[in-house]
Design a protein around this nucleic acid. Structure first.
Lengths: 241, 241
DNA sequence: CGGTGGATTGAGTGGCGTCAACCTGAGTGG
DNA sequence: CCACTCAGGTTGACGCCACTCAATCCACCG
């Protein structure tokens, strides 16, 4: 399997790639690395000379406070360049952690530099993917600052559903979301206990069925309404960029 | 005055620019626009064909929920390309608003495209500036999700102080921060009433003096400690990128 | 069959929100 | 010069959403 399959799928949702650009991505050298669940993929403070793409599995970006409280700032799935920003941002300002066992592709920064030297449009597409990450951050800022716990969770589920769909990881209205309630709490800025209660409300209202990692969305429209979800920020329309 | 003075200052803090690159920025065509306080500079949903740089004044990026609640996701000051991301992200997923009267420089996206075609390193530097915006978003996510109101405010003041310093807008330990408590509330994810009380605590503890827009930091170390502020994420060290 | 990670539940608490009144200072107009 | 207005800041009373602490349940596993 080529490095670039899920990445190409993801980029093509945003703009057409030329055959040449696709070839460049497919020919880019990389190293496969497997990481067990729970392990850190990159740590705050490190200066890396490669960036990591997720081929399989779930990862988070997270920061830890002095007293051990943790905030997850992003979830990443197949096709996501988890730390593409480490290409220009040094050192890492946060850690990246594997939630499940992960298959990763490590790409040297030198390879990325060369892309930026020779392929302006492809460069813009990679830039774009970091801009979408930032747009997601902004949406989470609104959720943490101004939405209720229930609304925040509903919004997150809508977002994940669409992102997973673009890389073919949904089945009907369902997907796998292999996180514990403690992890969810760290993403939503809540306590684990309260996450449990909000989950119960989600189920009571019959928005979703959620058993283990398996999430079935039963009423996407209601979920969208509760989360005031507007997918614009995911930039899922192909446009020349 | 050239478009690029505060921008060049900002970029040079992160990596050296070549004389050629500086010339490109200085020669880039732009239009000056003055905007009164309170006016929207760009609105959610618009697709723009230019990006806006702040030459003078304060602006915010913000999102508004259906019931009118607002969340500010960023403050921008001189030298910041407020909506550089609109170059690749279309349409705008949030609004940009002038807090004070602002002097802006509007740069056509075509100009930016040309830079990406001809000047790879300069492109990386512009990319970098959007990555730093994202790093700031992440820091705010931690603040909103896991920090107390007081800690959040302290952290914000530390951040603004350093950012203003890099473009020469501090004087001793003081700077101008022309926001109302309502605006601050929208940035910190709090109610205006609670912002007022947290401000009183800041003053009571003698961390800062704050009269009108004039903020004097009396004990930066204590402020850093309360906000658990670590400036790494601002990438203020020049490094080849 | 005990150990363990994760989910669930209950009781009590607190940080921050809401509502509403009041204060203050900087205009503005007569 | 003074009355009026108005935006913004301040204060008090009260309530709730979400937190903490701690116990219990459950499924899975060696």
């Amino acid at each position: 399997m080529a490095l670039s399959n899920p990445l190409i799928a993801k980029l093509e949702k945003r703009d057409r790639l030329s055959p040449e650009e696709r070839r460049v991505l497919e020919a880019a050298p990389f190293v496969i690395k497997n990481v067990p669940a729970g392990e850190d993929i990159a740590e705050e403070g490190q200066t890396l000379d490669f960036s990591t793409m997720v081929l399989e599995g779930w990862t988070t970006r997270n920061k830890v406070l002095e007293d051990g409280r943790r905030q997850i700032t992003a979830f990443h799935i197949a096709g996501d360049f988890v730390d593409l920003h480490s290409f220009l941002l040094k050192p890492m300002d946060h850690s990246v952690t594997a939630v499940t066992p992960c298959r990763l592709a490590l790409v040297k920064h030198a390879v990325l530099t060369e892309i930026t030297e020779k392929h302006p449009h492809l460069t813009r597409m990679l830039w774009l993917s970091t801009l979408i990450d930032a747009a997601i951050h902004r949406e989470w800022l609104v959720a943490l600052g101004r939405r209720s716990a229930l609304s925040n969770l509903a919004h997150l589920l809508c977002e994940l559903y669409l992102r997973l769909e673009t890389v073919g990881l949904t089945k009907g209205g369902s997907f796998q979301f292999p996180v514990t309630q403690v992890l969810l709490a760290d993403a939503l800025g809540l306590s684990p206990v309260h996450v449990n209660r909000v989950l119960q409300e989600l189920r009571r209202e019959d928005f979703v069925t959620w058993r283990g990692a398996n999430v079935v969305i039963k009423d996407f429209d209601k979920l969208k309404a509760v989360g005031e979800f507007d997918p614009t920020y995911l930039n899922l329309t192909p446009v020349p960029r």
